[in-house]
């Protein structure tokens, strides 16, 4: 006779970002989208990678400059359904998921649908940036349209300091 056991695992994590991502996230706090130039092949990445995926070069965290806030929409999806099951209450998420020093950002739970995941090619970058769009923009998204960054008022060096991209 088979039997089914129910159990739960609760383990907070903290993730080291390293010098390149660390510099990038620091830029977001200053409302800057930093492009990182590969010292070997000179391609500019935003967001950066730890290693240049084209030539294998190592990025220098100081070899970066702010790009503009606009780019082309390469592709997108509008997430229309909650695929995760019922959303736990915020207190539960904080307790389970947030190391105290990371503030109160829900790290592992997506926004409530509908929202869009947008793939944006920032002007001057060689790779694509995945981020969010919301609200009235959801019905205006079209592959190829122009997008601009919208910043949060309060920023602390986190991907969601950039609140979303909006359709121009």
């Amino acid at each position: 006779m088979s039997r089914v056991l129910d159990w739960d695992i609760t383990v907070p994590f903290r993730w080291t970002c390293g010098p390149v991502y660390g510099r990038f996230l620091g830029g977001l706090k200053e409302k800057q989208l930093l492009g990182f130039e590969c010292p070997r092949c000179q391609e500019v990445y935003c967001p950066p990678q730890d290693i240049c995926p084209r030539c294998g070069g190592d990025f220098d965290p100081e070899q970066c400059r702010p790009l503009g806030e606009e780019g082309d929409l390469v592709s997108f999806t509008v997430v229309e359904a909650n695929l995760f099951g019922p959303r736990p209450d915020d207190e539960y998420l904080r307790r389970r998921i947030h190391p105290a020093d990371l503030g109160e950002h829900p790290l592992l739970w997506p926004p409530d649908p509908p929202y869009a995941i947008v793939m944006v090619r920032l002007d001057g970058a060689a790779n694509n940036f995945l981020h969010l769009a919301r609200g009235e923009d959801l019905s205006r998204l079209q592959v190829g349209c122009r997008m601009r960054a919208v910043w949060k008022e309060e920023r602390e060096g986190f991907l969601l300091d950039l609140d979303r991209f909006t359709v121009l």
Binding site: V74, L83, P106, P113, I117, Q142, V143, L159
Partner: peptide
């Protein structure tokens, strides 16, 4: 660091792939 904040599992990534392909 980059993306888990808004990921909706595998379907959201493949939907981005699909939009690009269809358009």
């Amino acid at each position: 660091i980059m993306g888990r904040q808004f990921a909706a599992g595998a379907p959201s990534a493949v939907a981005v792939q699909a939009s690009k392909y269809y358009s």
